[in-house]
Design a protein around this nucleic acid. Structure first.
Lengths: 129, 129
DNA sequence: TTATGTAGTATACAAAATGATACTAAGGAG
DNA sequence: CTCCTTAGTATCATTTTGTATACTACATAA
């Protein structure tokens, strides 16, 4: 029970709906790398190894898994060019573009408070006071 | 290496800044329950067992852990009332309220496409075509 | 004395997510 | 033949997340 990916029944019912809508959204973009991948696809289609260069921290395995999940969720399109060496491009689907406002807000928030963290010394970026 | 929580160096540098801003944001709100907890704190301060009632899926341990992390990040304030039986209230800090726009967008997106999922039969909620 | 309620902590374990490393296929260059 | 490239797989190890259960402190109620 308590299935995480695509279970349907969230866990947090609260009477406001079938499951918590925020939980539903985080199911799609909440993976460790998904937001980042979507963020970089906003500009233009990206190839597998392009992501690897952009995010040196992600392993091949995780990149594959996260892209596959995004594909399953219908937010990312995978275009295979039958060439050698292989070429595969990932881009947002029409549905995927509905996530852009969220990604942009997350980018903006990150830009603002990431800077703050550097300034204050990376402790509790809080406003406190 | 590759420290996940509060390490500072993200992993995704890409030349656009110290680390990917989206990744930074997801570090704060990306935990499995964090978005949901923040979402419910938007309305009003909540007590420990209130969260447990609202999200029956979360265990005491996880609730404690996630709330502690949100507190560490300075987005949640923990107010202890010295009473018996104990009373502890969790609410957004001033800094935490800066996340509200994101949470609201995530809620709206969830509300819209959660409904779609029910209609289409929970397959690939995609628009496809 | 025992039971009740709150907000936890402690311990042990299970499952899921993530990471590290090595390996594959296929065609072209040398 | 070997090496190079891309886009992955396969296998195993580790970390994170989640579950289950028992336990605490304190005041009040019965």
């Amino acid at each position: 029970m308590m299935r995480n990916r695509k279970g349907g029944f969230g866990s947090c019912t609260d009477g406001k709906g079938p499951a918590c809508p925020v939980e539903f959204t985080l199911d799609v973009i909440g993976g460790k790398w998904k937001g980042v991948l979507l963020y970089h696809m906003m500009d233009s289609a990206k190839r597998f190894n392009e992501f690897r260069r952009i995010c040196p921290g992600i392993t091949q395995r995780m990149l594959t898994l996260q892209l596959r999940e995004l594909e399953e969720d219908g937010v990312v399109h995978r275009e295979v060019y039958h060439q050698v060496p292989p070429k595969v491009e990932y881009s947002l689907t029409e549905f995927g573009t509905t996530l852009i406002p969220i990604i942009k807000l997350m980018r903006d928030w990150g830009l603002e408070y990431q800077a703050m963290q550097q300034t204050t010394g990376s402790q509790s970026l809080g406003v406190e006071g």
